[in-house]
């Protein structure tokens, strides 16, 4: 039970044009965190701040050697804008780790990871875990070089084999990350993906055709984060499933994407 845990901000810096990297100390949680899980933060000086009112979910981006948690975020609204004001030593009300992470209990030697935009954030944590089991390739994509620079640096630093796609061609392959996969012709026997729904839908179609099993992490607008409000449900072949509770990671085969 991890309610109302007040955690300390270790650092909160702008990394690249688009992203901020928040490092928090929450040693009570770190041993039970799996890639793909998320934490739910109450942002605002007062814990009962009414504006923003709801918590904000953030996927776990990485764990430091000292077991601090890294969250990567982009300023997209009021909550994330206020979050940029947090300084070292400030406290944040955290609920987590929440949701089901990536399941790593499978036998595979050729794993492919495909990430688009902000969806790359949790995949970095996953890739670091998987890298220890070898044979891995990561494909990442975004709008342009500026958006991808941070990730390029991180994957390079971690010595993980990766390739980049950008829509404008300013870094790596010009096109989507799915186009890159098609051209690259990597033949994995298992895959992980996270990114915009349009990308995941394409990944699912191709994987189905080639008979490749895998897992995807989904994003939906969320309120409670603990499975009571049913705001974040997504269609699956077993009916609606809660992204916050049964997810955010689902098997690639079970998710139903609307056209």
């Amino acid at each position: 039970m991890v309610i109302g845990l007040m955690v300390e901000v270790k650092s909160n810096q702008r990394v690249g044009n688009d992203y901020y990297l928040l490092k928090i100390r929450a040693l009570e949680l770190t041993d039970s965190i799996f890639p793909g899980q998320f934490v739910h933060l109450k942002i605002g000086r007062d814990n009962l701040s009414f504006d923003p009112l709801l918590r904000r979910p953030f996927s776990i981006h990485d764990l430091s050697d000292e077991k601090d948690i890294y969250l990567l975020y982009r300023v997209v609204g009021k909550g994330t804008r206020i979050l940029t004001d947090y300084k070292t030593g400030d406290k944040l009300d955290l609920l987590g780790p929440l949701g089901q992470g990536f399941k790593l209990d499978f036998v595979s030697r050729k794993i492919l990871i495909i990430g688009g935009g902000m969806g790359i954030a949790p995949l970095y944590f996953l890739a670091k875990r998987l890298a220890k089991q070898n044979l891995l390739k990561v494909l990442i994509g975004g709008k342009n070089k500026e958006e991808m620079e941070y990730f390029i640096a991180r994957f390079r630093q971690a010595d993980i084999e990766f390739a980049v796609a950008t829509m404008d061609g300013s870094a790596g392959f010009q096109g989507t990350v799915v186009d890159l996969w098609q051209k690259d012709n990597t033949q994995p026997d298992y895959l992980f993906a996270c990114g915009p729904e349009a990308m995941l839908r394409e990944v699912q179609v191709i994987a189905q055709k080639k008979g490749i099993p895998g897992q995807v992490s989904l994003e939906e607008r969320m309120a409670c984060g603990i499975g009571v409000c049913l705001s974040c449900v997504h269609k699956t072949n077993k009916g609606n499933q809660r992204v916050c509770k049964e997810g955010p990671v689902f098997s690639l085969e079970e998710v139903v994407f609307d056209d």
Binding site: L53, S231, H234
Partner: peptide
């Protein structure tokens, strides 16, 4: 259908 939730000032 989604989205099913959004935040407004001091409300959801």
């Amino acid at each position: 259908p989604a989205p099913r939730i959004t935040e407004t000032p001091a409300g959801i």
